[in-house]
Amino acid sequence: MPILPDAVQNLTLAFERLPGIGPKTASRLTFYLLRAPEEISRSLAEALLALKSDTGLCQVCFNITRAGQEVCDICASPQRDEGVICVVEEPLDVLALERTAGYFGRYHVLHGVLSPIEGIGPDDLKIKPLLERVKSGKVREVILATNPSMEGDATALYIQQQLANSKVRITRLARGLPVGGDLEYADQNTLLRALAGRQELGS
């Protein structure tokens, strides 16, 4: 028998469905909003509704874009080199690469990675549109920037296999020691690759 009104109960349950939020956090958030000025819950509610209705996927690179906009700002920008495509797992990876301010090509978001054990195959990702983009002929280089994990490697290998007959250059982000890391804790895989990819100093 619920002691609290449905409105309180419903919001608590809604919060609980979010990742990382348990029943305690959910009710704390609910009671905070209950006591806070109406303005806060109103703007939160509006922002939540807009999240779905005002966004869509870019029809070229599948990054998240504003609703009704066919092509995202990066794909539409003449300043970005359309001959280079950087392939990433998630839209958040695009943000990370953009923050470097050192990449001037375009992107392709796969929305996931291949995972043999979880049963995620090539058809579950945006791989086919990527292959078509490359076939269109303007692309010179495909940079595979999937995560350095077993699944990320499998995805990169699969795309490489599919593009093997095309003339484009296929590269993978370098793997090595992170800034501020400690050799003592490096695993063999990382160290071996860091050794293989060592670079001449002072050139």
């Binding site: 043999p116 979880e118 049963g119 195959g121 699969y158 296999q161 093997a164 007959n165």
Partner: peptide
Amino acid sequence: LNTPGFLRAVRRRNPD
């Protein structure tokens, strides 16, 4: 099992 299907998908699409 998930993996036999994955193996088939990967083998089938070998572009050669």
